[in-house]
Design a protein around this nucleic acid. Structure first.
Length: 376
DNA sequence: CCGATTTGACCAGT
DNA sequence: ACTGGTCAAATCGG
């Protein structure tokens, strides 16, 4: 099998699996948003496959091959042209490749204002699991810069990274620069929320509250990805303000939006209620978002009034994997940088396994136990 | 024991 | 040579 076929098959199979998921969401209890999201993913996969067939006599572009090789290095190890170069050791190859990718990766910056002492200094996270891989003193900056990559980098080849830089002027502000898109199946966490929303049994309040925050930030993250997809916003600089009450704000500006090649995941969660212009009264918007998403949940589960101090300090993994257990975890942090990206341990939770599979990975593993994935 | 973090070393770009 | 970004061994911690 050559590279082109591999790329094509991965896209087509992903489309197929997404269609399966969609089929499981055809029942009335599934939210329209979930179905729309799946449809969008399916269309994205097939569009990508079709565009490959149309480009240059049907060959996969090198960038696409590179992208997949990045996502599934083990799969491509034997066929990548890079593996022929015996002069370069593994590290060299990685570095060269990383640098090449770096230029084409999407990038945007968010400024997160975190006020301590209000009980809201928890992680203003984006719903993804990050792992710190470095810290560096930056010239002219009073605070070191933290480097984070997606926890699923190795497991699923997700290339998303972020950098967290504490502001000199206002130490309560953290500038978070995201690079690359998430290709990992953490996306399916949102589907899990949707499934939960469609359930007849509401989650315990703590879990609902935790999910509320999680989903909101994840949704915000996806807004930024959606912006990248929108070529009309090329070269634009915009600012969004999220005010979590009066305690914390999240300012977002996008940069470097001219990456045509950046194919954001076809996945895109419906952003029905959020508009960049009217999120200032987030205290009031949040329940609307929540209702949009959580469907039949009572507002008491999601009202900011019910927020405990741990509302903002629950790590995503705990949110997502433990909601069924009816408890949340408070993780007091002293280092604000850590608060932005708390340690995550996406381990062997039974629910986690259900969520944690990669569609394409499954494609290359015929023995994957699909029967256990009735979640979808 | 295993996964996450820390931190000095290494590398590429300028 | 300097700087920012990443690697990877050592360490931490649940």
């Amino acid at each position: 099998m050559d590279m082109e076929q591999m790329v094509l098959i991965s896209e087509l199979t992903q489309g197929k699996e997404l269609a399966k998921k969609l089929r499981n969401h055809l029942n009335p209890s599934s939210s329209k948003e979930t179905r729309d999201s799946l449809i969008q993913q399916i269309l994205g996969s097939y569009e990508k496959a079709l565009s490959m067939l149309n480009c240059g006599g049907g060959g996969a572009s090198s960038s696409m091959v590179d992208e997949l090789a990045d996502q599934f290095p083990s799969t491509f190890a034997n066929i990548s042209p890079r593996s022929d170069n015996s002069d370069l050791d593994y590290k060299d190859q990685c570095h060269k490749h990383v640098n090449k990718k770096r230029k084409t990766m999407p990038q945007w910056t968010e400024q997160m204002k975190v006020c301590s002492g209000t009980g809201l200094e928890g992680p203003l996270d984006d719903g993804y699991c990050w792992r710190k891989y470095g810290q560096k003193d930056i010239l002219g900056a009073n605070f070191p810069r933290g480097y984070y990559r997606c926890t699923h980098r190795h497991a699923q080849g997700c290339l998303a990274t972020k950098q967290v830089q504490r502001s000199d002027e206002d130490p309560s502000i953290f500038e978070v620069t995201y690079r690359g898109r998430h290709t990992c199946s953490q996306n399916s966490q949102l589907a899990a929320v949707a499934v939960m929303a469609s359930s007849s049994v509401p989650p315990p309040p703590a879990a609902a509250a935790a999910l509320s925050k999680e989903k909101r930030n994840h949704q915000h993250y996806l807004i930024k990805q959606q912006e990248h997809e929108d070529q009309n916003q090329k070269q634009s600089q915009e600012v969004m303000m999220f005010n979590f009450g009066s305690a914390a704000g999240l300012k977002v500006k996008t940069e470097n939006l001219d990456n045509r090649e950046d194919i954001f995941p076809s996945f895109s969660f419906p952003l029905t209620s959020i508009e960049a212009d009217n999120v200032e009264e987030n205290m009031f918007i949040e329940p609307f978002i929540e209702n949009d998403f959580m469907g039949s949940f009572s507002p008491k589960f999601i009202s900011p009034a019910t927020s405990e101090s741990n509302y903002f300090s629950v790590s995503p993994s705990h949110n997502m994997y433990n909601f069924g257990l009816g408890h949340s975890v408070h993780t007091p942090e002293s280092d604000l940088t850590e608060i932005i990206s708390p340690p995550n341990s996406v381990t062997n939770s039974p629910i986690g396994e259900g969520f944690d599979f990669s569609l394409v990975k499954v494609d290359f593993d015929p023995n994957f136990p699909f029967d256990n994935l009735e979640f979808f």
